[in-house]
């Protein structure tokens, strides 16, 4: 699996399209944790996100020979997962005539004692502050922050995924950063060395 890390996205994607199971596995494991976390930013419904990820990767496997090219796999996966989630939410809403499943809260954090311990070890108080602050943002702002800062996509990619124009994304992010700056001003920021 490690051998793929020296390949470009376009090369890995072509290997996958050409029938390589190893490339398929690599693509999943390279992106799944981020994709899952992103999915929960789009909709706070874990079974639904899990189903959409399952359906997305099964679809990719079944149709690999006929998929188009891409040189940005993560962007492609984010976009596809988001579309699936929105369609599933829409279908469910229509079927059950229930309210909107979009929420302003992140999923509950770890509940078991082991997980809490791990969490305490790996995540500093600064991280907790950040997660709380990001969680409190309106959904669109939160999603844009995830795509731009957590996932390092660029403005055009983020705009395309969210179906907004670049200027709107920029405005959303600017407002979000303003809020986060206020929220985080008490948390200790990293030292900076510019000399």
């Amino acid at each position: 699996m490690e051998s793929f890390s020296s390949y470009s996205d376009a090369e890995i994607w072509n290997l996958f399209r050409g029938g390589s199971d190893k490339a398929y596995e690599y693509i999943y494991h390279r992106h799944s944790v981020e994709l899952f976390s992103y999915g929960l930013y789009v909709v706070n419904n874990r079974p639904l996100v899990e189903d959409c990820m399952h359906d997305l990767f099964v679809y990719l496997f079944q149709h690999r020979a006929s998929l188009g090219e891409t040189n940005a796999i993560k962007y492609y996966l984010f976009k596809s997962l988001r579309r699936r989630i929105l369609e599933a939410v829409e279908t469910r809403t229509r079927q059950h005539n229930r309210g909107n499943e979009f929420t302003n809260t992140l999923p509950e954090t770890a509940s078991s004692p082991e997980e809490k311990m791990i969490e305490a070890e790996t995540s500093s108080s600064r991280n907790k502050h950040l997660m709380e602050a990001v969680t409190a943002l309106p959904p669109r702002q939160r999603e844009a922050i995830f795509l731009l800062y957590f996932s390092n996509l660029d403005y055009p990619e983020t705009a395309e995924i969210m179906g907004l124009n670049i200027r709107t994304v920029y405005n959303q992010v600017h407002t979000a950063i303003q809020t986060l700056r206020k929220q985080l001003s008490h948390a200790s920021l990293l030292p900076v060395f510019l000399e």
Binding site: Y28, F36, S37, M53, E119, S123, R126, L130, F150, L184
Partner: peptide
């Protein structure tokens, strides 16, 4: 301050992400 702000915004996976994605992979 801007640099510190950007640096502090790093990706933190959902705490259950490892286990959840492994289960999804088995289902796939």
């Amino acid at each position: 301050e801007a640099r510190g702000l950007v640096l502090s915004m790093t990706f933190l996976p959902h705490p259950d992400a490892q286990e959840a994605t492994q289960n999804i992979w088995e289902r796939i």
